[in-house]
Write a protein that binds this DNA or RNA. Sequence first.
DNA 1: TTGTAAGCGTTATCAG
DNA 2: CTGATAACGCTTACAA
Lengths: 332, 332
Amino acid sequence: MNITISDLSKMTGLAKSTISGVLNNKEGFSEKTRQKVLQTAAQYGYVPNEIARGLTSRFTKTIGLLIKDITNPFYNHITKGVQEVAAEHGYTVFLCSSGEDHKMEVEQIQAMVGKRVDGLIIAPLLEEVSFDHIYALKRKKLPFVLLGNIPGLDCDTVEFDDYSGGKQVTEHLLQKGHTRIGFVNGLNTSKAGKLRFAAFQDTLFAHSITTDPKYIFKEAKSLSDGYAIGNQLIAMEDRPTALVCFDDVIAMGVIKAFDNAGLKVPDNLSVTGFDDIELAIFPLTTVSIPTLEAGKALAQTLIDRIMQERVSKSKHIVFEQKLIPRASVKQL
Amino acid sequence: MNITISDLSKMTGLAKSTISGVLNNKEGFSEKTRQKVLQTAAQYGYVPNEIARGLTSRFTKTIGLLIKDITNPFYNHITKGVQEVAAEHGYTVFLCSSGEDHKMEVEQIQAMVGKRVDGLIIAPLLEEVSFDHIYALKRKKLPFVLLGNIPGLDCDTVEFDDYSGGKQVTEHLLQKGHTRIGFVNGLNTSKAGKLRFAAFQDTLFAHSITTDPKYIFKEAKSLSDGYAIGNQLIAMEDRPTALVCFDDVIAMGVIKAFDNAGLKVPDNLSVTGFDDIELAIFPLTTVSIPTLEAGKALAQTLIDRIMQERVSKSKHIVFEQKLIPRASVKQL
DNA sequence: TTGTAAGCGTTATCAG
DNA sequence: CTGATAACGCTTACAA
């Protein structure tokens, strides 16, 4: 069905190794043979079987990418970055989503290992979860780079400074005169959420401000979660004056709820997010995160590691987060 | 580095074929051997080399997905759908983006064919472009399904009824009393755009309404394109009263421009989009498109075709588009 | 400059 | 019930 190198060998009367050599641009073939091979290959639409090639060469020119949800702007920008540099270097990428489910994460990684990817980029669940599968990778000496880090695990990482981001928004809110501030956190399995929240609490504590526990929400992960929380807030008589959301998507959900109820942001509630997603046309004060660049860095780091045959020591890249003040926070 | 079946063979003292048989749940092995194999395999963390497996079995359990831009909600929802169904059936998916570039499209498909995917899902450029690479697939008898259709090419397809969508919005606008209506089209390579625009023109024509050519824009593909067009519109003294945009992302760009200029939608301009993306918290009148479902249908159709060994005749699935009236259109 | 042969990790076939 | 052996399509010594 698919033409092979031995087919070409028979057709041209040349040996398989000759065909292979020419096709791989090796030196030392007469122009005549070279032409003959190239021509008949083109004529019959020969496409080398990379999979057979991978068997001998130990390289599949494939990398795996495991993210949480392709539908989330944060992850699809990372994906785009990975994609771009992978393609530049001739790699194809397997895309897998864990959907924030640990079992799925383990399975998908396993599947990609089985398919003998040359390396893996993983955005793992980082809290309240076992890392056995990641350690297994390390033991196998399969190159991989993590988005985020696992304490005590020495490997390449790309990270964002979430603590700083959390601190920046909180201080901004404080400066604007807010003292009754709520926080909507993401999933418990997210380390970014843990760090942002820690920064939030620490910063408030440093200013001797305490938060009412009823202003703290958890486990939000979608626009509809944000929407539901927005409605809870609307129903409270002593609402906070400001709300820090784990990401822009959630923030948009909250804003939508207020909008639907005829309330205004920031007049009735100041709202902030994280990610600075382009689609949020609402002038949302947020913390920008260089996701596209991080994706590129992720892929570049992995490819470097694959080439170097894992000699050099681990690389750790940290991207800064930066507050983007816009109009969703009111000066009190 | 990676443990193989022959390693297991040596360790257990059993033959390779025995190991292979047990691992693949074949009948006819004593419970004793079975246990022995399974146990040592687990002990040493054996992961079958799918790539070697693929060499003999002719199946790689991998499918390829080629889209235009993962960052666009339309495509990432399709991707999510494909992903889900693929994972359910034990397939891993290669994700490639053409970035709306024909050369890239050809190359990426070529790469995936080289990696011997079992089948391909392609969202190809459909206008002003050659289809040689698609015909080559057909000749190779490699299963594939298209998002959209190519006239004269008999293959599985999943489509949206873009003409109907275009007609629905246009009629809606007419009903609301608009007669000076503009249109922002997507790229020339998009058939969806061609169809939506044709419906737009036909519908206006049927109502004996003509559009001013200066109200027609082309080649928009991003929020910033929409933004720029919004600004052009703002600068016009005789603006249209309504604007049909190729998709929600572009529409959001237009709205953003108006917002920034202190103008209001729909008071100063009625705007509509396509896709009904969740993130558009602005109450945008749009045409909803079941992208997630389409993604699932795409994957299911492909997998069916792979199993059936391409006997049955081509399947064509058409998803309807549906107008979702919201508040971005003003009653005149 | 070209050809032969072995090997990559599996599965399949066919004896034992 | 188990074990050799060939085959999948390619690369790579090594030989001619």
